[in-house]
Structure formats: C-alpha cells, structure tokens
Amino acid sequence: MKKIWMICLMLGSLPAFAQQEGVVVTYEKEHFWSKIYDRLTFLSEEERSRIKTTWGTHDEGYKTKGQLFATASESKYNDLEPEADGGWRGRVSEFMVYRNLDTERKTEIEEFAGKTLVIDDSLKAPSWKVLNKIKEINGYMCMMAVAEDTVRDAKLTAWFANDLAFNTGPERYFGLPGLIMELNVNDGEVIFTAIKVEKKPLTEEVKLPKKMKGKKITTADYDKTLKTYINDSMKSHRNPYWNIRY
C-alpha cells in the first residue's frame, strides 16, 4: 500500500493527461431550510419561531448530490442530476469547480442569481484552524478544522481524512492536508457528507472542460457581488438564500 501512495505522489508531478491515481467521491448535500430561515434578520422572533414549530420537526434536509474527481494536483466538482423518483424534477443549475494545486489556479462556473459566471483566478484557501477532535466518517479517521466564510458570514466546520492525501473537498472547500469528508455550515444549516469514496486512476475526468460559456469575473468581484446581493436582499426583506449556493 505504501508503495502505491509513493507512486501516486510521483505521478502527481507528471504532465497532464497521463493516467493518475485519484479518487472519485460522491457527496450528499443536505439543506436544513428551517434553520436557514433563522438567518433572515428581517424576520421577527415570532416569525422565526413560527417557522421552527411548523417545519422544524419535519425538516429532514433537502438532499442533493455532487461528485468530486481528484488527483494529487487537480480536482473537479460537479453536481449530480437527481434520480427520477416519479415526480417533478428540478433543473440542476450550472456549477463546476476546478482547482489546480500545481499552478495554484482555479476555474469555477456558477449560475449565480440568474447569470452564468466563470471565475478564473488564483487559489486562496480559507484560514483553517485545526482542532483536537477526531471522528470517523465512512471508515476514515477525520480531524476537525474550522474556518470563517466572511463573505457569506458563515461558520465552517470541516472533517478531513489524513489518509486520503487530496487537498480538496466538496464545492469550494479545500486547503487541508486531507480530503474533506464532511463539511458543516453554521452548525447544521447545510451539511456535506462523503457517502462514497472510490480510488481509481483518472485522466480526462479531472480536467478542465474545454467549453465554458459565461461572464468572466474575478474572485474579488464575485465576492463583492455576492455580498451586495445578500445585503440588498436583506434590506429588501427577501430571502437571499433561495437564489445562491449556500
């Protein structure tokens, strides 16, 4: 086993398109809307508690799935189309996150509040604090790290697996020595959990797609737009979280 990891590490530095050792991770993302509503500052205490008593006990989380392809140097995350269950199915909005640790660049495609944006910029990891807690997720021993998302004003709690040496995670989250197996936003408003981890060699899957349509924007501008949008929505007494990725 150790040998394989060494090989994997060495292969990581080989030029692109060669087959590389990697992982395919399926994440389940749960939204607990009854908790998210608690963040709407314009609601009165009465309205917020009414939402909790009406919906709180039934809130089993709105579930979606995403898939991450990762090698030591690159990773790509996509949403998965929900499985047909006989009823109405919504559209999966455009979303892709590509990161390259070697070039320290990222490319993200996101449908944000009615526009498709392409964010092509340098990588910047959140400032993680690694704390003294361990738990096991899906057979992997994970350590806890916390960070602040200053743009969305959210508290992030990540659990990363040291023995999956991939500096990546679901959606935009990365920057830890191991793969992020679980990510919890604001004490359970949104929870990502790795439900399947599959080790296999990757080639094309992890590469940046050639066709990318959308408005080019920098991370700084994106953050600014997002922050303005959240502030404006709150001021206008609208729930901003329906229209953005939380």
Partner: peptide, 17 residues
C-alpha cells in the same frame, strides 16, 4: 496499513486526554 483500519462510525474522540 494506510487503509481504513477502523470499524466504528462517526464517533468523535479527542486525543488530548
């Protein structure tokens, strides 16, 4: 040795003490 030697699910432990 690097693979999953653990059997318990979702248990939080802390190792300071």
């Amino acid at each position: 040795m690097l693979c999953i030697p653990y059997y318990c699910k979702n248990v939080i432990i802390s190792y300071n003490l």
